[in-house]
Design a protein around this nucleic acid. Structure first.
Lengths: 156, 156
DNA sequence: GACTTAATGCAACTGAGTCGCAGTAAAGGC
DNA sequence: GCCTTTACTGCGACTCAGTTGCATTAAGTC
């Protein structure tokens, strides 16, 4: 069984189609992002990727993220800077969603809404702005933490 | 003429009402933010503030911004990281707005829409999330740059 | 298999933001 | 107006995410 040709339409396939080399590092990084159960920051991505490709370098991670971002294959998130200034990444899907960051427990929820799409359409139509990325992040308290009003907090 | 008591309802007044000291540094910083014609980052705020209070320190700027942010008197923006990782600040107003960042010319436009408010209400109602800050940032091309398709770019 | 050059590893660097501590000056009481 | 308390500031060293220049390596092509 040969694993040379990536799945048609996959991120790796799209990279190859645009003439970028499919290095072992890029494969590992892309697959790690795809398999992640939550949003990864650069440092976490690096350490996860190193489990498969131990010699992979930090600079390569940043350069790969930069590339995927430029090609709009991934989205960069701040998640309201709840844990420092690092950025988080997720595979871009058709439907963009809102990120809800609870500043008490640190939970990140996602919210998908037609109103968000409508708002984006409204922006383009009314201002002539050609939208490439739209990032809506909300900070506050999730339902659980909102109920548990003044108990000891967990996040910063 | 005495300038001791700040305008009722002003940022300085709100600080004083909450028991925070009105130091000369805080006054200068708050006034500088209020008088700014555009969004300021910490370094720019510092250099502007130094024109009036030459010995003001960088740490004080960060601590003051932190305080104003915590009290929800200002909002922190990323402006899509068009010029590095720094943050920008603006006085919080009743009506929150969308920031449109042109990745070609670097222009920042603001967009005010009832749909944004509706979306926020929808989020709270459907998820039980108690919203404290909502930041919607859009990256792409402003009308002018969108028209001038492939001319030499200005920003990064 | 050899060639070309895109991509990587390395290591030093940048720049925003933080922190502990000693000194200073607001606010309140007299 | 002066004194006291302590919140706040300045300082300087530090942290940590992200960047860069350059020598080396390996993906894609012939």
């Amino acid at each position: 069984m040969r694993a040379k040709t990536p799945e048609p339409g996959s991120l790796l396939d799209q990279l190859a189609a645009k003439g970028f080399r499919l290095t072992s590092q890029r494969k590992v990084l892309v697959e790690t992002i795809q398999q992640a159960s939550k949003h990864l920051d650069a440092a976490t991505l690096l350490s996860l990727a190193r489990k498969r490709e131990p010699l992979i370098n930090r600079a390569t991670v940043y350069r790969t993220l930069e590339l995927l971002k430029k090609l709009q294959l991934i989205d960069e998130l701040d998640l309201m800077h709840l844990e420092g200034e690092k950025h988080f990444y997720e595979i871009r899907t058709d439907r963009q969603h809102v990120h809800l960051a609870c500043c008490r427990c640190g939970a990140i929820a996602e919210f998908d809404s037609g109103t968000f799409d409508r708002l984006k359409r409204e922006i383009s139509e009314q201002t002539g702005f050609e939208i490439q990325v739209a990032r809506l992040e909300v900070g506050g308290r999730c339902r659980a933490c909102s109920g548990a009003a003044r108990s000891p907090p967990a996040g910063r």
